[in-house]
Design a protein around this nucleic acid. Structure first.
Lengths: 345, 345
DNA sequence: TTTCAAATTGACAACGCTGTCAATAGAAAG
DNA sequence: CTTTCTATTGACAGCGTTGTCAATTTGAAA
């Protein structure tokens, strides 16, 4: 324990290493053109003194803030928690701080708000979560201002050439619906997600892919528009299950809506999964706690966020990211909410 | 829109207001001994220029960092999300930034880790969430170092004279168990939470209060030790429900364990709530999504965190907090997981 | 050996604010 | 109308870095 420890500055390190403070600064920042032997000397001094550069001074004097903003709007707590954990990991690796910035994605002055964070030098870049990563208006505004950002789970990666990370939502949804079909279901409905989310579109496409491949009909009334929340899941399932010819399986585009569906069905007295098979998407904590436990696809949000943040910072520092990738692998989690179609021949 | 806008500094404001930069600084920081008319002039200049002080320069030059750390360990995502939202609100109000700091509460060098955040001037204070708010070793170490902190939901508020906020967990638990008793239950078991959490102790006390008041027996085997997680809820309920004389109602000390209990019971073929009444604690998002929807007590985590953070910052700034209070009100949320005891006379 | 460009290093002035302390203005007292 | 005290204001030196640019050293070519 160091008692009476004054704050260690770059001057102390410079003195101990017998170089100028500028050279210490160069070493700290990995700048080129420093003799290897000098680097060694400085590094030795740094950790002998346990020196930690003052981020305030660095930000004030330099051009970087070493801060990244995580912006989210209208979010699922557990999703944000995972995203944040991943982003934090990447930030730690690079020595960045994560600024948490909840906002409202429907506000028209969002671009201004973000650009201002950048102009006032609060952050060096922004991590855009859904649905903001899908707003062309927003991403283009940011691009025009030369603001660095990365997109988590964008519906259309090519909508911007900023870094992005996601899973192949379309393929995952297709595979999930295919699973239902394999269980003999033919009347499969979908509860779609908030159209502001690109993911909603992709999941719907996956549904279409699987149904069309199997040559199954997709009547209009089997396509319900939800909003990714529990309540909309309930409402949509009510509509579906009171149809003359109700579906025997429902693909809810996320777990929250699947939970709503499940609760409605149970309340109505249906036996699950015998009378109705349900699948969700996300593998949220709730999924395994329901009964029957929900079959869903695991969205590795933490991993995605980590790589996305890593790419963002790498871009800012003009270095290579850990892994060059826009896509992570997903996993279908088989649980108890799907059964063989009883009406099947 | 300001095109070509250079960064506005305190100098610009001083020039416009025709005062020295020091006077602007005084106004910005609400320091005393500035003539009212001067304050007005400066304030006018400030918002005419839309001036935002540089937090870096402020932190570098002054003694405050304007940062608060939110530390958590081993946490429930939705709980942390709520806490964070509340803390963020309070921070915004005071112009502080929230530093998110996940950690491991079992590490022996936690005190050192926190003190170091303070010594290296990363933060001005720390918001301690459960179970860290209950570690005497930790709080005393922080107190000895003169580090400012506040405790969210401490088991024993008097364990430190630092600010704290919570609900009356004991009374809430008592009321909840009372509810079960009112429904004719006599064989009521409890699945206790992680003993590292003071809240677990208080909830248990509430159970004891209610049972003793009603003159009901509390056999040892009706008291199971859980860990606040889903899995432990399952395990404990298995033990309880395979007893010779199983309980007709179970008080799980949080919703996650209640969900585990519910899933086990359902899997076993019990009819809920007819065969078994279950109550939880927290009112987590999962609670309303289960079927039957869970009767529980609403823990206003966001509100608690907001006030706790407010008190923390107020203490740091040596000002009065918005509300002087250690306790918020809770609410019993009646849903569908409790039924009249069928075995009752 | 001499020469010259490139590599390496350092001196010093910002960066935008606060702390200290001295200067000034205003109010109360004589 | 002075004098004294206090409220108000300003000048200036940091805070701990990085950016700029000049100085010095090095290495290879001449």
């Amino acid at each position: 324990m160091d008692n009476e420890s004054k704050k260690i500055t770059i001057n102390d390190v410079a003195r101990l290493a017998e170089v100028s403070i500028k050279t210490v600064s160069r070493v700290i920042n990995n700048e080129p053109n420093v003799r290897a032997s000098t680097v060694k000397k400085v590094l030795a001094a740094v950790d002998s003194l346990n020196y930690q550069p003052s981020s305030f001074a660095r930000s004030l004097a330099g051009t970087m803030t070493f801060n990244i903003a995580l912006v989210y709007s209208n979010a699922t707590p557990s999703y944000i928690y995972e995203v944040q954990s991943g982003a934090l990991e990447a930030c730690k690796k690079w020595g960045y701080e994560l600024i948490i910035h909840p906002c409202d994605h429907t506000r028209p002055d969002l671009p201004t708000e973000f650009v201002s964070m950048y102009d006032t030098r609060k952050v060096d870049g922004i991590l855009l979560t859904p649905p903001m990563c899908d707003s062309l208006e927003l991403t283009q505004a940011l691009e025009n201002q030369g603001l660095q950002f990365a997109r988590l789970q964008p519906g259309d990666p090519t909508a911007s050439n900023s870094p992005f990370t996601g899973i192949d939502e379309r393929a995952a949804a297709r595979e999930l619906v295919r699973h239902l079909i394999d269980f003999g279901h033919e009347n499969i409905a979908i509860i779609n997600g908030d159209p502001a989310h690109g993911a909603a579109f992709l999941r719907m496409q996956g549904y279409i892919d699987a149904m069309d491949e199997a040559g199954l009909p997709r009547p209009d009334e089997y396509v319900q528009q939800g909003m990714f929340d529990f309540e909309s899941g309930r409402k949509c399932s009510e509509t579906l299950l009171t149809l003359d010819k109700p579906p025997t399986a429902i693909f809810a585009c996320n777990d929250a809506m699947a939970a709503g569906t499940m609760q409605y069905a149970l309340k109505k007295g249906l036996k699950l999964p015998q009378d109705l098979s349900i699948v969700g998407f996300d593998d949220s904590p709730t999924a395994e706690r329901l009964w029957p436990a929900l079959t869903t696809v695991r969205l590795p949000a933490q991993e995605l966020a980590k790589h996305c943040t890593d790419s963002l910072i790498a871009g800012i520092r003009k270095q290579k990211p850990e892994k060059l990738m826009g896509s992570c692998s997903y996993e279908i989690i088989l649980r108890d909410s799907v059964a063989q179609n009883a009406q099947h021949v």
